[in-house]
Amino acid sequence: MKRVLFLLIFCLGTGLIMAQEDKDVIIEGKVLNDANDEALENVNIVNLNKVKGTTTDSEGAFKVRAAVNDTLYFSYLGFKSIRVRVTNDWLKYGEIKIKMTELGIALEEVVVRPIQLTGYVEVDARIIPIYDNYRYRIAGLGSGYEGGSTQPGAVNKVLSAIFNPADFLYNVFGKRPKQMRKLRQMKEDDDIRNLLQSKFDRETLMAVLQLERVDIDEILNKCSYSSDFIKTANDLQILDAISECYEQYKVLNRDRG
């Protein structure tokens, strides 16, 4: 009888532990500068598993929904981005202090070549360069495709990219279904959208999608986005572009074995 009772208690205890590990709760913490323990405000925090985001307040404090073994991604301008795994100790002891290390930023010399204007509108209008990128829309495929400048063959390039999906995209999208499904979650989370709108470093996208920056650039290139867009778009625009490309990819590759 005692033996049966012991096994029952053991099973119940194990079940409670497992349930706790799978359960989402609100966890709290503070983000500090490792050099002087000063609070860091507006640090971007993303739960990579749940694709939920938040930021720290003026005292460096934050709250985010997470479960045991979820990974939180911390990024802040001028500091090294870090990943922190949520543990049972975090849930047990409450608020945890996260310390971030400041980076030394070396700026490369930039040569600025100003446009020499004459003061005559008709002449200056011909001198100032205009960068136009065109998007082509094909009936039945929803959104358009950016073909870059109007160089000869731009339309053919777009058609080729659409109707002959590159093996690169198949390998990237096809082998990362879980990561690609996170695109929709990211688009639906206002905190993450606001976060990405002010960023241009691609770091958060790289962390969530488990891609390198060169892979992100190549995805956009294969999806016929211009080099100007790839260089100048903020992270939110990049997210929307990759998401659009992935949705089109799913339609065009649904019969592919």
Rank of each mutant, 00 (worst) to 15 (best):
I17V: 14
V214I: 10
E28K: 11
S226L: 01
I242F: 04
F200M: 04
K2E: 05
G15V: 05
C245F: 03
D190S: 15
L16E: 03
I98V: 15
A139E: 10
S160A: 11
K99Y: 09
I17D: 03
V123Q: 10
E59Q: 00
Y131L: 12
C223L: 04
A233T: 02
C11T: 08
R85M: 15
V43I: 08
T232Y: 09
E108H: 13
F6Y: 01
T101Q: 08
L252K: 06
L252F: 03
K30I: 04
Y246W: 07
S226Q: 02
F168N: 04
D167A: 08
R256M: 08
R135K: 15
Y136E: 11
K30W: 01
R184K: 14
V121M: 07
L211M: 14
V121N: 00
R184S: 14
K30R: 14
F6Q: 04
I45L: 10
G29V: 03
S224A: 13
N164S: 15
L211S: 03
L32C: 04
S160Q: 12
E102G: 03
K80W: 00
L239I: 07
L12D: 04
K187P: 01
T54A: 05
N88W: 05
F163E: 09
E41N: 08
N69K: 11
Y73I: 02
I27N: 01
G174I: 02
L209E: 05
T87W: 04
L169T: 08
N42D: 12
G174F: 03
I26D: 10
V172M: 10
E212D: 08
V4F: 12
L239A: 06
F6G: 00
R83C: 13
Q20I: 12
Y73T: 07
V4S: 06
E109T: 10
M180D: 03
Q237L: 13
M206E: 09
